[in-house]
Design a binder for these strands. Structure first.
Length: 198
DNA sequence: AGGGTGATTAGG
DNA sequence: CTAATCACCCTC
């Protein structure tokens, strides 16, 4: 394959995201083949953490392509993103789900005995299965402890697109892609409706 | 359907 | 400072 990961990550994020389907994310003995991703378009995207500009939390997203942006949410979960575009911009691809292709024993232990298809089915589960946490935020996916390796593109006929999961802002943008028929794709969950205060 | 858990942000 | 929100997962 002539195409490199960095070349892919420098394309517009709406092209880069689906191109990452099938790529393999590895940490230690565990490796996951990506089956579901979402694009976040930084300053152009009200749904992105980076929409309101750089903060300590979002600093990694404003760094160079190939960085790993890990954030902590809901008091207990980590989620992982691949940083795209040149430094100073803040687009990223959220890694929503994958199929464990190596180290299933370790991943299963970390995931409390979950069945194989659930090991990395969801962004926080994926991080848990791979042992990714806040200490990996800002590391480089080409040289750091967590590596991402491009695979052959998944044929377009097998790729499905739809709305992103769990967002209230820009919930209509169909910026999620997954591999059709993959049991590891996370279930669609619309954002919780906001109740009027009373 | 509802709870857990804590960082981040908007607002007084 | 307080209150609301949050790119989620688990159990019931």
């Amino acid at each position: 394959m002539t195409e490199t990961l960095l070349e892919v990550l420098h394309r517009p994020v709406l092209e880069a995201a689906p191109r990452l389907l099938g790529a393999v994310l590895a940490h230690g003995d565990v490796a996951v083949r990506l089956t579901e991703v979402e694009a976040y378009a930084g300053a152009d995207d009200p749904g992105s953490h980076a929409f309101r500009g750089e903060t300590p939390r979002t600093r990694t997203m404003f760094g160079p392509a190939g960085g790993l942006y890990v954030y902590f949410v809901y008091g207990m979960h980590f989620c992982a993103n691949v940083v795209c575009g040149p430094s100073g911009t803040a687009s990223a691809v959220l890694l929503r789900a994958g199929e464990v292709v190596s180290g299933a024993d370790v991943a299963t232990r970390r995931r409390g005995g979950a069945p194989p298809r659930d090991l990395a089915r969801g962004p926080a589960r994926l991080c848990r299965a791979l042992g990714i946490s806040g200490e990996h935020d800002g590391t480089d996916l080409l040289t750091g402890p967590v590596r991402l390796e491009l695979a052959e593109p998944v044929p377009a006929s097998q790729v499905v697109t739809g709305p992103r999961v769990g967002l209230r802002q820009a919930a209509d943008r169909p910026w999620r892609w997954w591999v059709e028929g993959e049991p590891s794709v996370s279930p669609y969950r619309p954002a919780a409706p906001r109740r009027p205060r009373g």
